[in-house]
Structure formats: C-alpha cells, structure tokens
Design a protein around this nucleic acid. Sequence first.
DNA 1: GTCTATATTTCGATAGAC
DNA 2: GTCTATCGAAATATAGAC
Lengths: 212, 212
Amino acid sequence: MTQATSRQATVGGLADSEDGGPADDATPEAASTRERILNVAIDLFTEKGFDGASLREIAERLDVTKAAIYYHFASKDDILMALHMRLHEFGKDALGKMTDEPVTLELWGELLGQLVGQMLAQRKLFLLHERNQAALEKLHRDDHDAEHDDIQDRFRRVLADPRVSLRDRVRMACSFGAAFAGLFMSGDAFEGTSNQELGELLRDAMRDILAG
Amino acid sequence: MTQATSRQATVGGLADSEDGGPADDATPEAASTRERILNVAIDLFTEKGFDGASLREIAERLDVTKAAIYYHFASKDDILMALHMRLHEFGKDALGKMTDEPVTLELWGELLGQLVGQMLAQRKLFLLHERNQAALEKLHRDDHDAEHDDIQDRFRRVLADPRVSLRDRVRMACSFGAAFAGLFMSGDAFEGTSNQELGELLRDAMRDILAG
DNA sequence: GTCTATATTTCGATAGAC
DNA sequence: GTCTATCGAAATATAGAC
C-alpha cells in the first residue's frame, strides 16, 4: 500500500503533517516531491489544460518517473483535487462572511476587496481553475462525498438570490468580472505593474460599479 | 480524396458555397451533416472540454460513425478551427473600428457595446472559447500560416499600449470583464432575464466603469 | 456520403524489484 | 521512495467496400 489514498487529497504544504504520510514541507529549504509535483502540475495544467497535460510530462519535468507520482497521488484526478483544495483554503476566509441573509452591495464589496488580495497572491492557482472548468466539474460530479460548499457554488447562489434586485445582482457579477479580467484576461498587459498598484486600480473600478 | 482539407476550415453556414464542397446550408430546412457536426461539437467541447470530448461521442449523438466525421473534417483540430473562424466572423465588424491610433475610453465603450450584443446572440460560441483556451492556443501554435489578427490578440495589444494611461487600460479590461462575467460566469443566475434587459444592465455597468 | 474494420499511438494505472 | 516493465483502455486517424 502506498501513501496515496484515493480522493483524500490534503491541501499540501498547509496541512498533512500527521501519521506516516509524506512529510509536511513548511520548512522552505527543499520542497518535498509531493509539493514539487503540485507546483509543476499547476503550470502544466494551466498551459496545456488538465487533459492536454500528461503525467509523463510532469514526471519528465521533475526528472522522475510516472510511478513516483503514483506513490504520492492515487490518480491524476487526485492531483487536481489537491490543487482545488489548496485554492479552497485561501477562499474560505472571505466566504465565511456570507450568511443566509441576502448579500448587500456593501458586503459584496468587502468580500471582493478581500478576495482581490488573495487572487493577486495566488494568481496561478486561480488561473488554473479558470482554465479547467470542465475538468473540475467532472471532478465534482465523480466525487460522491461531496462537501458542497464550493466557492463557485456559493457565488452563484448569491447571484441567483431572488431577494436581491436583479440590478444589484448583475452589478455584483460585473464587479467580480472586472477584477477577474484585470487579473487574468489581460495576458501580461499589466505585467510591469506592482500588485499593490494593480490591486488599488481594480478596487477603484469595483467601487464604481457597486456604487454606480 | 475526401472533401476535408487540412486547416482550411471555412466558417460553415456562412461561406463555403463554391466548388464541390458540402453544400452551404443557408436554407433552414435541414442542416447539412457538416453543420450538425459543428453544432454538436459546440455543446460537447463546452461541456467536457475539447480534449475531454471524443469524436466517438459526437458521432453517437448524431447517429453516424466517426468515419463520417472525417469525410467533413480533416481532423479533430479542424473542427475546433471551423468554430473559431465562425466566432471570428462575428467579431470582425467591431474590430474593424480599431486603427493604429491609441484607443480612447469612448471608442472602447462603443466597441464593447457592439460586442455585448453579439455575445448575447452567440453565447455558446463565446463560452466555447472561454472554456478551451489551452486547446485554442495549441491550435494557433500549430498553425503556421498564422493570419494573426486574432480577436484576443488585438484586445491584448490595446491593453498593453503604452500610449494609453495604465488607469484607462485597467478600466478597459474591467469593463470587458464586467460584461463577460454577467454573461458567462454567473451560470444560469440570470437565465430568466431577457437578452434586452440583461444587455442594458450590462451596458449601464460598463458605462460606470469607463466614465468612473 | 456513410459504413466496417483496423492501424497506431498515447495515456492512466499497476506489479514487483531495489 | 523511486525504479523498470507492462497492461488495458481509449483516442485519433486511415483504408477500402458500398
């Protein structure tokens, strides 16, 4: 029996520090193989798509064999799931602010302002998700112990909440899209800009939409 | 030799009406097999991703065999290219307004206002592109007779134009993202809304960003 | 224009030695 | 924890009959 257990992916680098599992690598020096696999996977899954990138490529880039990967992960899906959990970890703080009350434009603004900071810090992870929607949906479909507080689901539920006016809900979607486009759809057009400057410009634009 | 010639995909349903090629199907009655393949491909490539969807599935859904598909298209890539050209056809009118002059916020607003209408009318085609970035990039990489006036490239070039202030360029990206999110990232949250109403709400939000 | 049948490749995954 | 070797499945694509 290997360490890789099906669909029990941990965040990796954040948790995973008990029993005999691969050692947690909070210490910076040398990333564990597990972490190195995840880091290469982020790049390859984003560049070529989850289906377009093969385990062979990941292995080659790390100079190990496919079999080594299967020691750390039960399946290719399991790698994607681990990355998904990693993102979820970053998003859950902002999400915590959402109760069952109807979301106001003010609350949405707060939420998104916080999220923009995390998106700037975790650009690659968010980009991975944007570009692999189909694979992630399949992952959720196949996952039967669905702990369904997925970030995307929560967002969509808010945007569909009939207690909030259509106009406001459209504004909420637009403000999110505005931030998103500034970060991910512009290629490297804003590459020379510091995270702080870009973050402020985006927050300004968001404010104009929500105050509009 | 079959009709399918490599990488010379025509728009399909809009052009393609000369020589012995499969008949143009401007007449509504029954869509040609070629058109039916493209229509099914839009759905499957969007739902499962370009790599995740197989030609077998497309064939099954049309109740024909894979070989029939290869009569109409030289390769799987060729199908995606045909769909890409179809989108390009719709976008080129708006793009025509872009000269080599620096793009002003006003011009950008006009451009996007027009584009929103086309996005509403061709939702599926735009969604296909959003969800298959990796496959489309590979398509462009492999395409050596690159006629490089791709819509996305043009947009990015504008957003990177140093003659325009960073603030304005970020606003342009945001306004596009706002429209985009309202249309594609909200799932079916706005499904009950008419295209006209949604279009107006989106244009209002865009105006607020560009006027901000 | 569509079919049957098959060639060819690549992938995800496993077994077992070290 | 990583390796070599291999399996079985599924995919793209082709050949040739009808």
